[in-house]
Design a protein around this nucleic acid. Structure first.
Lengths: 74, 74
DNA sequence: CGACAATGTAAAATAAACTTGACATTGTGT
DNA sequence: ACACAATGTCAAGTTTATTTTACATTGTCG
């Protein structure tokens, strides 16, 4: 809908503890690698459902993976 | 994408403290009333962006308004 | 060098979210 | 009884998320 108000830490999180490839994350949450690429690039924001699945994949609460508005560039 | 794994407390929250009409909430978060109706009925789950705006409208963290999986029927 | 894994990119197609407009129902107040 | 506010519903249309396919780039390892 909106312009670009939702951001995420997916790429960072894939490295930190978790050390996951785009493909592995994609498989784990049940989407294609292209979707992960698009999210990391910030092309669009995911559905709420996918956001939940990704947060789970990292074992984090949703708002530690995705953020809204002001905090955008962190 | 998925079946019906995401639920929400929108309807409850509109009453509790906040006492808001569907139309008022819709205006506040910038969608049409139909969208609110559809969400309350569980027809689909919102975009992540809209989910954030709705949570904000209630002054709550996203995961206190929307929930995933097990907790579905609460 | 040649092979292979991880990533980037891009276009066309499908699915899901959201809008627009219109009408029906229920309850409340006058 | 009439009016009006809040809610429910339905169908057709637009926009955004996601898939599919395909190819290009970089790094590593034999």
């Amino acid at each position: 809908m909106g312009k670009d108000l939702v951001g995420n830490h997916i790429r960072k999180l894939r490295f930190n503890d978790n050390e996951m490839t785009q493909q592995q994350l994609a498989d784990k949450v049940g989407v294609t690698r292209q979707t992960i690429v698009a999210l990391e690039k910030g092309n669009y924001s995911p559905s709420l459902e996918l956001a939940f699945r990704i947060a789970r994949a990292f074992g984090l609460p949703l708002e530690e993976v995705f953020f809204y508005g002001e905090d955008m560039d962190q």
